[in-house]
Protein backbone atom coordinates (compact mmCIF):
# COMPACT_ATOMS: atom_id res chain seq x y z
CA UNK A 1 0.00 0.00 0.00
CA UNK A 2 1.52 3.33 -1.07
CA UNK A 3 0.20 6.22 0.97
CA UNK A 4 1.00 9.85 0.20
CA UNK A 5 0.10 12.58 2.69
CA UNK A 6 0.00 16.22 1.54
CA UNK A 7 1.13 18.64 4.24
CA UNK A 8 1.50 22.41 4.40
CA UNK A 9 3.64 24.70 6.50
CA UNK A 10 1.50 27.58 7.74
CA UNK A 11 1.89 30.57 10.05
CA UNK A 12 0.24 29.98 13.40
CA UNK A 13 -2.89 31.93 12.56
CA UNK A 14 -3.88 32.49 16.15
CA UNK A 15 -0.97 34.95 16.26
CA UNK A 16 -1.56 36.83 13.02
CA UNK A 17 -3.04 40.35 13.22
CA UNK A 18 -3.52 43.17 10.78
CA UNK A 19 -2.25 46.69 11.28
CA UNK A 20 -5.36 48.77 10.57
CA UNK A 21 -3.32 51.82 9.58
CA UNK A 22 -1.16 50.18 6.94
CA UNK A 23 -3.49 47.29 6.09
CA UNK A 24 -0.61 44.87 6.30
CA UNK A 25 -0.25 41.67 8.23
CA UNK A 26 1.62 41.90 11.49
CA UNK A 27 3.39 38.64 11.98
CA UNK A 28 6.46 39.53 13.92
CA UNK A 29 7.47 36.43 15.77
CA UNK A 30 4.61 34.38 14.36
CA UNK A 31 5.94 30.83 14.29
CA UNK A 32 5.56 28.46 11.36
CA UNK A 33 3.82 25.20 12.18
CA UNK A 34 2.53 22.19 10.30
CA UNK A 35 -1.09 22.78 9.42
CA UNK A 36 -2.77 21.04 12.39
CA UNK A 37 -5.28 19.15 10.24
CA UNK A 38 -2.38 17.66 8.26
CA UNK A 39 -1.00 16.07 11.44
CA UNK A 40 -4.23 14.10 11.68
CA UNK A 41 -3.74 13.01 8.05
CA UNK A 42 -0.19 11.85 8.87
CA UNK A 43 -1.48 9.92 11.90
CA UNK A 44 -4.21 8.31 9.79
CA UNK A 45 -1.59 7.25 7.25
CA UNK A 46 0.65 5.74 9.94
CA UNK A 47 -2.32 3.83 11.35
CA UNK A 48 -3.19 2.45 7.91
CA UNK A 49 0.44 1.39 7.50
CA UNK A 50 0.41 -0.30 10.89
CA UNK A 51 -2.77 -2.22 9.98
CA UNK A 52 -2.23 -2.98 6.31
CA UNK A 53 1.49 -2.51 5.72
CA UNK A 54 2.99 -0.25 3.11
CA UNK A 55 4.94 2.95 2.84
CA UNK A 56 4.03 6.48 3.92
CA UNK A 57 5.40 9.50 2.06
CA UNK A 58 4.74 13.10 3.03
CA UNK A 59 4.68 15.67 0.27
CA UNK A 60 4.66 19.43 0.34
CA UNK A 61 4.96 22.23 -2.16
CA UNK A 62 6.82 25.25 -0.91
CA UNK A 63 10.04 27.11 -0.45
CA UNK A 64 13.18 25.35 0.85
CA UNK A 65 12.21 26.23 4.45
CA UNK A 66 9.19 23.92 4.15
CA UNK A 67 11.71 21.14 4.71
CA UNK A 68 11.22 21.72 8.44
CA UNK A 69 7.61 20.66 8.24
CA UNK A 70 8.61 17.54 6.35
CA UNK A 71 11.28 16.66 8.91
CA UNK A 72 8.69 16.93 11.64
CA UNK A 73 6.61 14.28 9.87
CA UNK A 74 9.68 12.05 9.59
CA UNK A 75 10.07 12.32 13.37
CA UNK A 76 6.52 10.97 13.68
CA UNK A 77 7.58 7.91 11.68
CA UNK A 78 6.85 8.43 7.98
CA UNK A 79 9.13 6.57 5.60
CA UNK A 80 10.15 9.40 3.31
CA UNK A 81 9.48 13.04 2.58
CA UNK A 82 9.34 14.90 -0.70
CA UNK A 83 9.55 18.65 -1.32
CA UNK A 84 8.26 20.20 -4.53
CA UNK A 85 10.16 23.43 -4.86
CA UNK A 86 10.71 25.74 -7.81
CA UNK A 87 10.42 29.46 -8.47
CA UNK A 88 7.84 28.55 -11.09
CA UNK A 89 5.49 27.47 -8.28
CA UNK A 90 5.41 31.00 -6.83
CA UNK A 91 2.02 32.60 -6.38
CA UNK A 92 0.00 29.41 -6.76
CA UNK A 93 -3.66 29.56 -5.82
CA UNK A 94 -5.58 26.39 -4.95
CA UNK A 95 -5.90 25.35 -8.59
CA UNK A 96 -2.19 25.60 -9.35
CA UNK A 97 -1.26 24.10 -5.97
CA UNK A 98 -3.51 21.11 -6.60
CA UNK A 99 -2.08 20.69 -10.11
CA UNK A 100 1.49 20.76 -8.81
CA UNK A 101 0.79 18.29 -6.01
CA UNK A 102 -1.00 16.08 -8.52
CA UNK A 103 2.09 16.01 -10.73
CA UNK A 104 4.19 15.21 -7.69
CA UNK A 105 1.97 12.34 -6.58
CA UNK A 106 1.82 11.04 -10.15
CA UNK A 107 5.62 10.93 -10.04
CA UNK A 108 5.59 9.00 -6.74
CA UNK A 109 2.55 6.77 -7.22
CA UNK A 110 -0.14 6.29 -4.57
CA UNK A 111 -2.98 3.98 -3.60
CA UNK A 112 -4.31 6.29 -0.93
CA UNK A 113 -3.78 10.07 -0.79
CA UNK A 114 -4.51 11.81 2.51
CA UNK A 115 -4.95 15.52 3.19
CA UNK A 116 -6.10 17.55 6.18
CA UNK A 117 -9.59 18.92 5.55
CA UNK A 118 -8.19 22.43 5.08
CA UNK A 119 -5.22 24.64 5.92
CA UNK A 120 -5.68 27.13 8.73
CA UNK A 121 -4.19 30.05 6.80
CA UNK A 122 -6.54 29.80 3.83
CA UNK A 123 -9.38 27.61 5.12
CA UNK A 124 -10.43 26.78 1.56
CA UNK A 125 -10.64 22.97 1.76
CA UNK A 126 -10.25 22.85 -2.02
CA UNK A 127 -6.85 21.42 -2.76
CA UNK A 128 -7.70 17.82 -1.80
CA UNK A 129 -10.77 17.40 -4.03
CA UNK A 130 -8.99 19.24 -6.84
CA UNK A 131 -6.05 16.81 -6.74
CA UNK A 132 -8.49 13.91 -6.98
CA UNK A 133 -10.16 15.56 -9.96
CA UNK A 134 -6.83 15.90 -11.79
CA UNK A 135 -6.26 12.18 -11.31
CA UNK A 136 -9.85 11.37 -12.16
CA UNK A 137 -9.94 9.35 -8.96
CA UNK A 138 -12.70 9.46 -6.34
CA UNK A 139 -12.32 11.48 -3.17
CA UNK A 140 -14.13 11.50 0.14
CA UNK A 141 -13.97 14.78 2.08
CA UNK A 142 -14.33 15.26 5.86
CA UNK A 143 -13.52 11.69 6.83
CA UNK A 144 -13.99 11.25 10.57
CA UNK A 145 -13.28 7.53 10.80
CA UNK A 146 -11.63 4.89 8.65
CA UNK A 147 -13.76 1.80 9.12
CA UNK A 148 -12.00 -0.68 6.87
CA UNK A 149 -9.08 -0.74 4.44
CA UNK A 150 -8.91 -3.56 1.89
CA UNK A 151 -6.62 -4.15 -1.08
CA UNK A 152 -8.94 -2.47 -3.52
CA UNK A 153 -11.59 -0.81 -1.39
CA UNK A 154 -12.00 1.39 1.65
CA UNK A 155 -14.93 2.15 3.95
CA UNK A 156 -15.05 5.41 5.89
CA UNK A 157 -17.41 7.67 7.80
CA UNK A 158 -17.84 11.08 6.20
CA UNK A 159 -18.86 13.97 8.44
CA UNK A 160 -21.93 15.83 7.11
CA UNK A 161 -23.63 18.98 8.40
CA UNK A 162 -26.44 16.95 9.92
CA UNK A 163 -24.66 13.73 10.91
CA UNK A 164 -22.44 11.35 8.95
CA UNK A 165 -22.50 9.07 5.91
CA UNK A 166 -20.88 5.68 5.68
CA UNK A 167 -19.13 5.75 2.31
CA UNK A 168 -17.23 3.06 0.48
CA UNK A 169 -14.89 3.66 -2.40
CA UNK A 170 -12.61 1.82 -4.76
CA UNK A 171 -8.86 2.47 -4.64
CA UNK A 172 -6.99 4.58 -5.46
CA UNK A 173 -8.80 7.27 -3.50
CA UNK A 174 -8.12 10.64 -1.90
CA UNK A 175 -9.39 11.33 1.62
CA UNK A 176 -9.49 14.61 3.50
CA UNK A 177 -9.69 14.13 7.26
CA UNK A 178 -11.23 16.09 10.15
CA UNK A 179 -9.85 16.38 13.67
CA UNK A 180 -12.19 13.81 15.16
CA UNK A 181 -10.45 11.05 13.21
CA UNK A 182 -7.57 10.54 15.65
CA UNK A 183 -5.07 12.04 18.06
CA UNK A 184 -1.79 12.65 16.22
CA UNK A 185 1.17 10.96 17.89
CA UNK A 186 4.04 13.00 19.23
CA UNK A 187 7.43 12.50 17.65
CA UNK A 188 9.76 9.87 19.10
CA UNK A 189 13.38 10.49 19.98
CA UNK A 190 14.59 7.97 17.44
CA UNK A 191 12.30 9.62 14.91
CA UNK A 192 13.70 13.04 15.74
CA UNK A 193 17.23 11.78 15.34
CA UNK A 194 16.33 10.10 12.05
CA UNK A 195 14.60 13.29 10.91
CA UNK A 196 17.77 15.27 11.46
CA UNK A 197 19.66 13.02 9.09
CA UNK A 198 16.84 12.13 6.69
CA UNK A 199 17.36 12.97 3.03
CA UNK A 200 14.51 15.02 1.63
CA UNK A 201 13.81 14.33 -2.02
CA UNK A 202 13.49 17.64 -3.88
CA UNK A 203 11.65 17.83 -7.17
CA UNK A 204 11.42 20.78 -9.56
CA UNK A 205 8.88 21.62 -12.24
CA UNK A 206 11.14 19.96 -14.80
CA UNK A 207 11.37 16.77 -12.70
CA UNK A 208 7.58 16.63 -12.63
CA UNK A 209 7.24 17.23 -16.37
CA UNK A 210 4.63 19.80 -15.41
CA UNK A 211 3.16 22.17 -17.97
CA UNK A 212 4.46 25.60 -17.18
CA UNK A 213 1.26 27.45 -17.94
CA UNK A 214 -0.50 25.46 -15.22
CA UNK A 215 2.01 26.44 -12.56
CA UNK A 216 2.32 29.28 -10.10
CA UNK A 217 0.79 32.61 -11.00
CA UNK A 218 0.24 31.65 -14.61
CA UNK A 219 -1.77 28.63 -13.64
CA UNK A 220 -3.79 30.43 -10.98
CA UNK A 221 -7.21 31.69 -12.02
CA UNK A 222 -7.74 33.70 -8.83
CA UNK A 223 -5.94 36.81 -7.68
CA UNK A 224 -5.86 38.59 -4.36
CA UNK A 225 -7.07 42.13 -5.07
CA UNK A 226 -6.39 43.45 -1.58
CA UNK A 227 -6.40 42.59 2.10
CA UNK A 228 -7.92 44.65 4.86
CA UNK A 229 -8.92 44.55 8.49
CA UNK A 230 -12.50 43.40 9.00
CA UNK A 231 -14.62 46.53 8.90
CA UNK A 232 -16.61 47.93 11.72
CA UNK A 233 -20.27 48.81 11.47
CA UNK A 234 -20.86 52.53 11.73
CA UNK A 235 -24.10 52.61 13.70
CA UNK A 236 -22.64 52.19 17.16
CA UNK A 237 -24.35 53.77 20.05
CA UNK A 238 -22.72 53.49 23.44
CA UNK A 239 -25.29 54.23 26.13
CA UNK A 240 -23.85 56.80 28.48
CA UNK A 241 -26.54 57.37 31.10
CA UNK A 242 -26.67 55.89 34.55
CA UNK A 243 -26.63 52.12 34.64
CA UNK A 244 -30.33 52.11 35.58
CA UNK A 245 -31.22 54.28 32.59
CA UNK A 246 -29.02 52.31 30.20
CA UNK A 247 -30.63 49.04 31.13
CA UNK A 248 -34.10 50.57 30.92
CA UNK A 249 -33.37 51.96 27.46
CA UNK A 250 -31.98 48.63 26.30
CA UNK A 251 -34.97 46.69 27.54
CA UNK A 252 -37.26 49.25 25.86
CA UNK A 253 -35.51 48.64 22.56
CA UNK A 254 -36.03 44.92 23.02
CA UNK A 255 -39.71 45.52 23.67
CA UNK A 256 -39.98 47.67 20.54
CA UNK A 257 -38.37 44.91 18.50
CA UNK A 258 -41.03 42.61 19.91
CA UNK A 259 -38.43 40.45 21.57
CA UNK A 260 -40.29 40.64 24.84
Amino acid sequence: MKIVVCVKQVPDTAEVRINPETNTLVRDGVPSIINPYDLHAVEAALQIREAAGGEVTTLTMGPPQAENALRETVSMGVDRAVLLTDRLFAGSDTWATAYTLYKGIEHLGADIILCGKQAIDGDTAQVGPEIAEFFGMPHIAYVRKIVEVGNDRIVVQRLMDDGFDVVESSLPVLLTVVREINVPRLPSLKGKMAAKKAGILKLSAADLKAEEENLGLKGSPTQVKNIFAPEAKANRKVLSGSMEDNVAQLVNELVEMKCI
Binding site: W95, D123, Q126, P129, H139, L159
Partner: peptide, 23 residues
Protein backbone atom coordinates in the same frame (compact mmCIF):
# COMPACT_ATOMS: atom_id res chain seq x y z
CA UNK B 1 -20.09 26.18 1.86
CA UNK B 2 -21.61 23.01 3.28
CA UNK B 3 -20.15 19.54 3.51
CA UNK B 4 -21.59 18.86 0.06
CA UNK B 5 -20.70 22.16 -1.62
CA UNK B 6 -17.19 22.28 -0.25
CA UNK B 7 -16.58 18.70 -1.34
CA UNK B 8 -17.65 18.57 -5.00
CA UNK B 9 -17.38 22.22 -6.11
CA UNK B 10 -13.55 22.10 -6.18
CA UNK B 11 -13.73 19.18 -8.61
CA UNK B 12 -15.82 21.27 -10.99
CA UNK B 13 -13.42 24.22 -10.71
CA UNK B 14 -10.42 21.95 -11.27
CA UNK B 15 -11.98 20.40 -14.35
CA UNK B 16 -12.96 23.75 -15.89
CA UNK B 17 -9.63 25.36 -14.93
CA UNK B 18 -11.31 28.22 -13.21
CA UNK B 19 -11.08 29.94 -9.85
CA UNK B 20 -13.08 29.02 -6.79
CA UNK B 21 -13.26 31.19 -3.68
CA UNK B 22 -14.40 29.52 -0.49
CA UNK B 23 -16.48 30.93 2.37
Amino acid sequence: ATAIGRSFFPRVAARLHTGLTAD
